[in-house]
Amino acid sequence: MPDVAMMERVLCDPASIPDAAQHPDWEVRYTAAVAIEALADPAWLPTVLAMWRRELARPDYARASVRFVEHVGDTRNAEMIGPLTAVFPADTDDATRAAWACRGRVRQALAFAIAAIGQCDDVLRELLHDRLRDVDEDYPVKAAVARALARVGAAGSIAPLQMALAMDEWCTHTEAALALAALAAHGIV
């Protein structure tokens, strides 16, 4: 179990966000990003940038390799009560396991935080563009990034958003279309 007490605290006490942003549990970092989104204060942008960089430095989750005992398929498994056992490759360390469980959750929440804040610098914006360009990135991250770029996008956002628009996944496609329309409405074409 993650540090649930810390997760609860960070939602109620902004002073705990800096610690939570660096917490070893990804669940706590995710909660910190959600808390920053709720505050929507540009003062948290440096924290957001630091969290983005930390997330990018974590083990790759695009090629997670887990086998299961008693697994019955993706959606059927939702109906089952148990048991279920995950079997990891022998050399899988804790950080990698955490990355495979978390995948893009913190990145998604950080993108939403940027959207809520409504501004960002070129460095952070380019990190957002990179998520759209990365063919291995999960679609919840891409969709969230597209939503953020609807608020903070610039001329350089058009090309990566057009890549997202061409994706054969509804959420990403839809958010990209909305973002491109929002940028066009602000004269960014």
Binding site: V66, F68, D74, N77, A78, I81, G82, P83, A86
Partner: peptide
């Protein structure tokens, strides 16, 4: 006993493509 079994599987579920890509299926249960 049944609820304990359900709670006992949640850690492993995190690694399934089901929860990661079809999270809505797990929401209702």
């Amino acid at each position: 006993q049944v609820l304990a079994a359900y709670l006992g599987k949640l850690d492993a579920v995190q690694f399934t493509s089901g929860l990661q890509l079809h999270f809505w299926c797990f929401a209702f249960p």
